[in-house]
Amino acid sequence: MPGTLGTLLLLGALLFSWPAPIPSAIVLLAAGYAASLFLGHPQLDVSAPLVAGGLVLVAELAYLALELRPAVAAERGLLLRRSVVIGALALGSTAAGGAVLGAGALPAGGNLAWEAIGVAAAVGVVAVLTRLAREHAAD
């Protein structure tokens, strides 16, 4: 049900050239997948990275579709390059998702070292993102 709603919302966003509902549509699509996890997959679902790659591909293509409106004469290769970037992002995301899933499958076992690595990784990601965001704000 959430998946269907998400699809309809996405179609509406594309139809009316309105980017605001796209994140909600992605959330609903993800919610549909999450519901299926609780209903049919008690174990770790190894197809999650593929679903993640698919979701980012849907979001990227939806934003690209809106970005291309109104139609502007584009030089040859421009769209192809963008498509390659989007494809690479989807593939890279799938690979990264697989790595995360693999890390999630490791037995944590209440080891303090693992906890410390996890916390350091989270803090590191936030720090890097904050620094990048600051650089762009200063531009």
């Binding site: 999450a34 770790l44 999650a48 990275p49 679903v51 993640a52 980012v56 999630g104």
Partner: peptide, 13 residues
């Protein structure tokens, strides 16, 4: 953990 995996592509992007 699968739900965290769903957020990875967006974070990576």
């Amino acid at each position: 953990a699968e739900l965290a995996v769903l957020g990875v592509p967006f974070g990576l992007a």
